[in-house]
Structures are given as C-alpha cells and as structure tokens.
Design a protein around this nucleic acid. Structure first.
Lengths: 264, 264
DNA sequence: TTGAGCCAATTGTCGTACTATATATTCTAT
DNA sequence: ATAGAATATATAGTACGACAATTGGCTCAA
C-alpha cells in the first residue's frame, strides 16, 4: 500500500492496529509521548503527525495534560478506507461482513433507483460495458472482479447523492471480501450475472423500481454466499440462538421485513 | 467549538474551508510549505500537523516533491463531523439538506426495524424517556431538541450495526438544521410527536415492521418541512423542471418508489 | 527519438528549547 | 475539618534550524 512509505504513516498504522485490536482499551490513555518516542525511536515530529492522523480518523482524542485517549469504538470513522483495511486485518472477517451486507441492503437498491433517474449517458455506457465484461470474464478472474467493482461504484456515483458516494469504500471492501468466495465457488458468479444485467438494463431504460428490485435479488443471492463463506471459515455464521425467539434466526444481510417484502 | 483552540486546528479549518469553497480546485496543488508558512505566520510543525489532518480527512493527498494536491470531492470523508460542520458553513444549506434526507430515508427506518429486534431494555427506557420529554418540551426548546437528538441517536446505536452508528453525525447534522425550521414553525413539532411515540412503542414491543413504517411517516413529515424551509431561505427547493418527466418532480427526501409504498 | 543520469524543488525527519494548559496538590482562611 | 484559592507539575503545543529522502523534470548523449 501507500502506507509503508513514510515513517509517520507506518507509526499511525501500527498504533491504529493496536487500538483496533483492543490493546489499548476504550477510554484508556495511550502511552505518553516520551514513552512512545522511546519505543518507536522516531522524532517527535513523526510521533505527533501520526497522532494527528489517528485523531482525524476519530480513533483518539487528544487534550493537553491528558494525552491521547482512545475513543469509544462507535466514534471511529468506519467509512475511512484505512480503518476499513486495518479493521479487516485485525477482525475476523465474518463479524464485519454481516454488517457490511446490511448496509448494502439499505443503500444500494435505493442508490440504483436514484441512478435510474439521474444517471448520465456516459455512466449508463460504463454500466453496460461492465456487464458485458462480466459475462465474458466471470467473477473469478481479476478482470471480472474489476468490472464488478466498477459496476457498483458507477451506480453509487450516479445516485447523485454525495453521502452515498462516500460509502463507496465500505461496499468496495465488502465486494473484495466476497470475491474470495466466488473464486472458490465460480458457480456463484454465473448465478449473479442475470441480476447484474437486469440492473443495468433497468437503469438504462430509466426504470427505478425495476432496478431496485433486481438489486434486492442480487443482494439476496450475495447473502447466501456470505453464509456459505462464513461456514467455510468456520467462524460463527449467522448469530445463533441467543436472540429473541422468532426474530432473527439469522442476523444476516436480509432484515426479515424486507425479505418478506421481496418474497411476495 | 473545540476548533479555535490550537493553532494547527485553526489552520486546518481555514485550509479546509478554502478547499470546500472550491478556492483550490480539484486536482490542483496547494501552495507549498514555504508559501503557507509566510501567509499564516506559523511554525512548520503547526503547518505540517494541519496538513496531516486534512490528509486524514481525505481532502488532500500529499507526496514528496509534489506537495499537497486537492482530491476530487467524491473522495472527501463526508461523514467526518468537522467536514460536515465546515460544509454547512460554506455550502447553501438546501443543497446538502436534500441529500441528507435521502440518506435518512435509506438508513433510519431500517435502523429502527433492527433496533426493534436488538435494542436492550436500557435503550428502550431511554427512548421512552425521550418521547416523554418531547411531549412536554416540544421541539422549539433546547431541551426538546436535545431529547429528539438523543432519540435518533439511541435508535441508531441500538441497530447493532457499526456502520449505521458511524453515520450518526450526518443524521444529527440534518436534525440540527431542521430545528431551525421547527423553531420558526412550532406547529411542526406538534405534528411530529405521534410518530415519535409510535416508533418508540413499536421498538419497545419489538415490532420491527411497525417501527419502520412509523419512521417512514416521520421522515415524510420532515421532508415537507424541509421544502418549507428551503422556500423560506429562497434557495432552489426541490430541483425543478429539468429532470425526466414523471420521475422526480422533487428530488427530495422521498424517492418516488418508496413514497408509493407508503401512500398505499 | 529515446534512454540514462543528473539536478533541484519539495516534503520527510530530526533534536532541542520553550510555552500553554489542565490536573493534582498544598496551603490558607473560615 | 472543609471549602476555596494559590501553587506545582506533568503533558501536549509551538518554534527554529538543519539535514535526509524522494521524485518530477531537465540535460545530454547514443
């Protein structure tokens, strides 16, 4: 990555990983400058720039005399690309993946619907090209994955909503993780293809409702493979028994009510 | 704010504002260190820490020999509290508000549904208290506004989804802006009260679907006042004629398809 | 025209000294 | 003994000045 280049980046990364790992618990204080200076053997400039980075990413808050204290994890800027990357270096993938798919469920179908209204011809062209390439390459090749990524990114950019665009790193990250499944199980990409086609065509013909429905189906399909993936990994799949009876026998990508909405 | 305290924060703020205003266009380079040093009359330490902050917020990317170049606006970390605040200092409110309400439309009803499944008793207690306080104070008093804010924050935290929680700054910002309307037009808060009550009760009784529907209604109500607000401000309200016929006569908080889903 | 190698602009790192701020402690007056 | 004010002290914030490292662009030769 671009992150091993300069000293303060290395240091920011290392400190961030420790925080994400929970080595410095929430509300606890980081070692003070003097201590960190000795441990990392860097200049104070480097140290301070590293801390500034962590601060701007919401990981710590710094006050004079108090030092840098780790913020509660719900204050972290989870949409930051770096944090997303570091997170998945540290956390078991399955844990985050479920939540990512919930977000996709909330955002992307709507984004597709908005895109169907607002996408410019160039974006539509890109979408159709992506579908074309996916039909040739399939998702288990790097080219196919690249096309898939571009497909989703283009839709979000075409939504005309800046906040949707700002979520792009999360969705991209989720896709990258899912690619590991499809490269194991190429069959999955075959099945996903028709949904992609329908989404692209719906947007091209400016049919928001159709785009949205097709997207829900794509995500449902994707969720199935998430569970498969989690089982392969052996990590706890869908959160088992300890949820209230009847609610989520799976806490997965498909919130129950919406599932019912799709099912019919 | 906490942002006028230290020098490098002041400086970061000033530079960020310039970028948000578009004074340094996308892909263009910031003045080099020497220049900025003279203009701001600060030490290089301060300058560099300010730049690090901007970098971590996605506003610029820095490389040796090249200097700091402004990133494309779709790379900015829009969920960062500071950027949100700075943004609304610079941009006409109406422009961002519409997009914020779209996001609310995507996130909050689902979050409420998830909360209905996952909220712990303590959170439910908080929600009921908030509703209670809102019924007494109404939204045009600071206490009432505080309760409203806490209400929405609690729901998002109870969704059990970290990414939903990370969007909290956007929703809070949107509410703060909307408060300006309700303080002009107290009648609005009266009308919103029943929706809040229904949401809280639905979550308390673990009824996701009901919570979600009530939330849609609340947002619809809120959207109406957004338009009112925009008209008061005299800024362009809902994006007028130049959208494809039949799609969005308003580009507002209610994406057409979902509106139909609510209407019946 | 192209490629290798040098040059110079610009950021990256370092060390030290001093200042500002907020917590902790002590002291004083009631 | 207690509350409140003065003081001490730990810690981050700011300031210079010097040198190292990177890299885009230029020169020049093949």
């Amino acid at each position: 990555m671009e992150w091993e280049k300069t000293l303060h980046r290395k240091m920011a990364r290392e400190l961030a990983l420790r925080i994400l790992r929970g080595e410095y618990g929430p509300e606890s204080r980081l070692p003070n400058e003097e201590h960190l200076l000795k441990e990392f053997e860097v200049s104070r400039t480097v140290l301070r720039e590293a801390i500034k980075t962590l601060q701007a990413k919401g990981l710590v808050s710094v006050r004079q005399k108090l030092g840098a204290t780790v913020r509660a994890s719900d204050q972290w800027h989870l949409f930051d690309e770096d944090i997303l990357r570091w997170q998945s270096e540290v956390t078991p993938l399955g844990e985050v993946l479920s939540e990512m798919l919930e977000i996709r469920w909330m955002i992307e179908p709507m984004a597709a619907a908005l895109a169907a209204e607002r996408a410019d011809p160039e974006a539509v062209g890109t979408l159709l090209q992506c579908v074309e390439r996916m039909s040739v390459e399939r998702l288990h090749t790097p080219e196919g994955q690249e096309a898939d990524l571009l497909f989703h990114q283009t839709i979000m950019k075409s939504s005309g909503n800046r906040f949707v665009v700002a979520m792009e790193p999360v969705i991209s990250r989720a896709l990258e993780i899912l690619f590991r499944v499809t490269s194991i199980n190429p069959e999955a990409s075959e099945q996903a293809q028709p949904y992609h086609e329908q989404i692209a065509e719906s947007i091209a013909s400016q049919n928001p409702e159709s785009a949205r429905e097709a997207y829900y189906q794509l995500l449902q399909h994707s969720a199935a493979h998430k569970d498969e993936f989690l089982q392969i990994l052996g990590s706890s799949p869908g959160l088992p028994q300890d949820l209230p009876e009847g609610s989520g026998s799976f806490r997965g990508a498909l919130p129950p009510l919406l599932q019912s909405k799709i099912g019919g």
